[in-house]
Design a protein around this nucleic acid. Structure first.
Lengths: 207, 207
DNA sequence: GGATAGCGGACAGTGCCACTATCCATAATT
DNA sequence: AATTATGGATAGTGGCACTGTCCGCTATCC
């Protein structure tokens, strides 16, 4: 309960309607909003400040939809740390690699898109960590990402109400990533079980 | 440089060999290790404590390989917060759903695997946030995860040296997730560009 | 109608995390 | 010989997500 007070203070939750100086009423919209915050925070790992900005944009009905989606896209992208300026030979190479990928796949994305920068950051980090070979898997990953993205879009397309739409985008993007991560780990366990043992047992690192 | 001191103190980096009471030498293994730490920390978002445990297991050559992979698998899995005890109706339903998925796909995974619990946590959070419909995409996601996991395994299989192997698993799992996340966001941008506009421009939320 | 329990609001404090700064004695550099 | 740098130890910082406490009022129970 003190947490709710705190969220209200931080502008994450609207204050309840005061029925008297010390009595406030909360409707079930509040509860839904609270569950959304908890999901984005606990599962998605978004900082409260990012959640606050996204929710603020959602609630600002004056803002056009594409503005809101823009805010969401930026705020939702994990802060790509480590060489933020993007200097160093690996970073330059990584940016070229991303540009080549976008061209190769015909993806219509501006190269200064935050996701593109974030991808370049990952590629640079892989190279710096001595695992540049992992970058060869880019296209396999991109294929998988494409099919997931289409499914995501189908899910979002079912929404009509503005708030619902934005919420679907945010939830789908953030929780979808966590969902894929968990599935990928599960698939790892299964794949290595099959690869390293012909038959019965679970894999060594399956724990 | 003070950061390196700190990492040595925390046991993340081995101390350099002392040539005299105040002079230590670091070899390039140190630098490589440092880059690995930075990648896992900055890009992967792992807490230093988790990195320390994984690296500790890697360096403990007495431990059998499967033990090390076990430690890595557990430490690498994001701390599934929010309803950790897994009580509440959504959690029970989610766990059943995960079990059904594993059975349906024939994945050989013990149901108490941390990744399975983490998936159940995500599904429960989706339900609680009022986006249970997103769960319908589970199989699309699982297909994508499977193909990515096979590629990951192929990458790892090329390693022979023990330390290299474990490092590949860790890097592949952690940075691979970041790589997929970025690609998925890029694919979103492209997909909605194609869906909402016939032709030229980038999508509304593309930034 | 009087005691008590609880509310909203304000503000200070907590715990964790990843550093960062300062100090000291000694050693390398110029 | 003077300056600069280093390792080791300890303390301090800043960000984040809360949590605890106090206050004045009010709703409620007996």
């Amino acid at each position: 309960m003190p947490t709710i007070k705190y969220y209200v203070r931080e502008g994450l939750l609207p204050a309840g309607r005061l029925t008297s100086p010390n009595q406030a009423r909360y409707d079930d919209g509040h509860e839904r909003r609270l569950r959304l915050i908890r999901a984005l925070l606990d599962v998605g790992g978004l900082p409260l400040s990012a959640i606050a900005e996204v929710l603020g944009a959602v609630d600002d009905t004056a803002q056009p939809l594409h503005e809101v989606l823009g805010v969401a896209a930026v705020r939702i992208t994990p802060a790509q740390a480590g060489d933020p300026a993007g200097v160093g030979p690996e970073s330059a190479e990584a940016r070229e690699e991303v540009a080549a990928l976008l061209a190769r796949r015909g993806w219509r994305v501006e190269p200064d898109n935050p996701a593109a920068q974030s991808l370049a950051g990952v590629l640079a980090a892989l190279r710096r960590a001595g695992h540049g070979g992992f970058v060869e898997l880019l296209d396999v990953y991109a294929d998988a990402a494409e099919s997931v993205a289409h499914a995501d879009l189908d899910y979002v397309r079912r929404r009509v109400a503005r708030e619902d739409l934005v919420e679907s985008v945010v939830v789908g993007t953030v929780l979808g990533e966590a969902m894929f991560g968990a599935l990928r780990r599960l698939a790892h366990v299964d794949a290595s079980a099959r690869a390293y043992e012909g038959g019965r047992e679970a894999e060594p690192g399956a724990r």
